[in-house]
Amino acid sequence: MAQTASSKPRSFQEIILRLQNYWAENGCAIMQPYDMEVGAGTFHPATTLRALGNKPWAAAYVQPSRRPTDGRYGENPNRLQHYYQYQVLIKPSPPNLQDLYLGSLNAIGIDMEMHDIRFVEDDWESPTLGAWGLGWEVWCDGMEVSQFTYFQQVGGHDCKPVSGELTYGLERLAMYVLGVDHVMDMPFNDPDAAIALKYGDVFKQTEQEYSRWNFDVADTDTLLQHFKDAEAECQRIIDTPHEDPKTGAKIIMAHPAYDQCIKASHVFNLLDARGVISVTERQAYIGRVRALAKLCADAFVQTEAGGAAP
């Protein structure tokens, strides 16, 4: 922790770039966001699936995340239906993961000598992924800036070895570092750039559009059908024989199946935002998504990336 405090970043994207550089320097593969709608960075197969099996893994990436129920038409200072998470997953979790994490805060301009950083108990559980872990929420001067988790189970499988997962809520963290009170006022690119853009210039309108669609317009019948279709397709992919008749090779399609699981999960979130899911049904839907996640995890651990012998 002998690093000297980094200079203050000036924009949202600079914070992201510094995190990318920091984790690249510390040996992570810098991956790109997953190209599907997800509720959190954890859903990216680089986390969910790669936390399974015994193959070492180290990845970091930005993941756009959607939580339809959190939409506030761009008016709320820090609530958004679309936001960014920064996600790091290292397997096995290195012994110095806490120090590495603190180094990343330093890299984005949080001076460890002036701030109060705390690790406050917060166990993580994802009922839709059948996953849980123990860890903390990390507080900086009383504000939660990250989630720090040692994965114990994913898709019903014990994680052996254990992955360390770090999740940064980028907007909130950046607002704090940049001293901005409303997310829409936050500089997105360099405030001195010829075309200086604020977060609001980029996302205010989309927040309005999606809030309206999520809450009032999305066609629930279509969504219900999408859910059923994704569920059926996931099951069908899993049930397909492993041997590919065309090539004769054994190809377990864990990732395509998992895409359908992600799709079902997001459709469920949309239905939830539309208010058409009752309390009792809610549990049932979550259980159905979890069942898919479990199928995909079962499939993945039979693949080479999942640690099975080739």
């Binding site: 123990l134 114990q152 052996k160």
Partner: peptide
């Protein structure tokens, strides 16, 4: 009340024991 594993350890402790 709740314990965990970390890294490649077999030991369980409340959080990683150093």
């Amino acid at each position: 009340p709740k314990s965990m594993r970390w890294g490649s350890s077999s030991l369980r402790w409340v959080r990683p024991l150093h």
